[in-house]
């Protein structure tokens, strides 16, 4: 039997919610372990003080990408059954730009705001409140925004198709770019006071 297990009726919808809970616990655990529940640490990314966000995000992306690649190659995973988020060019680029401004302003993203809250950070609660408000606003304005939201649909489009490269070459390219990014990140961080720790101090203040 090949993965994904759920798609083969291996277990039902009720059990899938328990899987969701377990996956979430592990997700939240590693986010907190990496310091991703700390807004000061996340925001320092954008001032080149602490590039942990970049390192954690791209290490995770590369790990999962290589995992999918090798499990597929070994015949253990049926990749056509994985849900690949489809592409809408303009709304996703624009949405990313808006999201980035909100990220550096709020200091947390949706998932990390949960970890911030559950580790006692009250600013996490404010980010979550703002996010619910933003989603409400977007939903209420949806009749007006629907045109933009649904603009430039191209369906499921992947990087190998865009770059006209074989899947294997794209995986290699993304891995190589991530590693080059990590080397650069280590260099940029050097001599900037070190990464933001979990303590209540405010390192790298002033300058």
């Amino acid at each position: 039997m090949r993965a994904p297990l759920y798609e083969w009726g291996f277990f039902g919808d009720g059990a899938s919610l328990l899987v969701a809970l377990a996956v979430g616990v592990a997700f939240g655990w590693f986010l907190e372990r990496g310091g991703m529940g700390n807004a000061r640490k996340l925001a320092a990314q954008f001032y080149f003080r602490d590039l942990t966000v970049f390192k954690v995000l791209f290490t995770a992306v590369v790990t999962a990408m290589l995992g999918v690649f090798w499990l597929t190659r070994l015949g253990l995973l049926e990749p056509s059954l994985l849900y690949v988020p489809p592409t809408w060019v303009v709304p996703q680029l624009l949405g990313g730009l808006v999201f980035g401004v909100g990220f550096v302003m709020g200091g947390l993203c949706p998932g990390t705001s949960c970890v911030a809250i559950s580790s006692g950070r009250r600013d996490g609660l404010a980010v979550l409140g703002g996010m619910l408000f933003g989603i409400l606003l977007f939903g209420e304005a949806f009749p007006v925004l629907e045109g933009l939201y649904s603009a430039t649909p191209v369906g499921t489009l992947t990087l190998p198709e865009v770059l006209r490269l074989p899947y294997e070459a794209t995986v290699l390219l993304v891995t190589a770019m991530a590693v080059a990014g990590f080397v650069l990140a280590e260099r940029l961080e050097r001599g900037r006071g070190g990464p933001v720790g979990p303590g209540p101090d405010t390192p790298q203040g002033g300058t």
Binding site: G95, G102, F103, C109, G124, G130, I135, G139, L145
Partner: peptide
């Protein structure tokens, strides 16, 4: 934080 969350919410929906 609240303002950033709101902007992010809009961006994430879009």
């Amino acid at each position: 934080a609240f303002g950033g969350g709101a902007v992010m919410g809009v961006g994430a929906k879009l």
